[in-house]
């Protein structure tokens, strides 16, 4: 599903974010990206949905070399890749329902599709009765659920999660991990960058560890160490 071949990414005036990285992630896998801050985890994720372009190397998503993809085709790529962030990136002036609907509206989905898919996804994330609340009326965990609902409403092949539990207490984080696990079980490939040792150790999924832009460990059913 995702393949990196000798990928290097350098930000001008900074240390190298990713150095000669190789990785092969299959369909339906759940992968933790771990490593200290600045080790290249976020860059790894940002390269996959073309928020960034590598300086060298090739990246394949669903068999396509995304480096060769034209600007026009980037939106199509992103429709297949959901993204979840530590700060949720919710629109404060929109309700839960509107935030999730927004993701479908802006890709031109017809109204009847939106009116059936949005309640279904809110049910899945456990927010069916909060559809008309605004983000500021929700807890952090609930906001992250909205963010996950928005990322998953279009049933993407891949879900990228950048420190999704970073702002949450351990109990709430477990709830979010259960949700991501459920999503993974539907066949969606999940890549999650995290610092959360407890979660990694408990879930025992594939672990890719980064240090100074290098992949230093790639272990199936790994732990944080």
């Amino acid at each position: 599903m995702i393949k990196l071949e000798d990928v290097t990414k350098e930000y001008p005036g900074q240390t190298i974010a990713l150095r000669n990285a190789d990785a092969d992630i299959g369909k339906g896998e759940f992968v933790f990206l771990i490593g200290p801050s600045g080790s290249g985890k976020s860059t790894f994720l940002r390269l996959l949905n073309k928020q960034e372009a590598p300086d060298s190397g090739r990246i394949f998503v669903a068999g396509k070399d995304i480096g060769k993809m034209s600007k026009r085709d980037v939106p199509k790529l992103r429709r297949n890749i959901g993204a979840v962030f530590q700060d949720y990136k919710l629109l404060q002036n929109k309700t839960v329902n509107e935030n999730v609907s927004f993701a479908l509206e802006v890709i031109g989905r017809p109204r009847h599709v939106i009116s059936t898919q949005v309640p279904a996804i809110l049910e899945l994330v456990g927010l069916a009765d909060m559809a008309h609340k605004y983000p500021h009326q929700l807890s952090g965990g609930e906001q992250q659920r909205v963010s996950i609902a928005r990322a998953f409403v279009n049933r993407p092949l891949i879900l990228l999660a950048d420190e999704p539990t970073g702002n949450l207490d351990p109990q709430t984080a477990i709830g979010i991990m259960r949700l991501l696990d459920r999503i993974n079980k539907t066949g969606t490939t999940v890549l999650m960058a995290t610092h959360d040792r407890g979660i990694v150790d408990q879930m025992r999924r594939r672990v890719i560890e980064l240090a100074d832009g290098h992949i230093v460990r790639d272990q199936s059913r790994g732990v944080y160490v």
Binding site: Q51, P75, K76, L77, L91, F102, V106, I107, R150, A151
Partner: peptide, 17 residues
């Protein structure tokens, strides 16, 4: 900008934005 960022992330085309 936040809305536009979300629009781009979920795959809205440039013309739509």
């Amino acid at each position: 900008r936040r809305e536009i960022e979300v629009m781009r992330l979920v795959g809205a085309t440039s013309w739509f934005i």
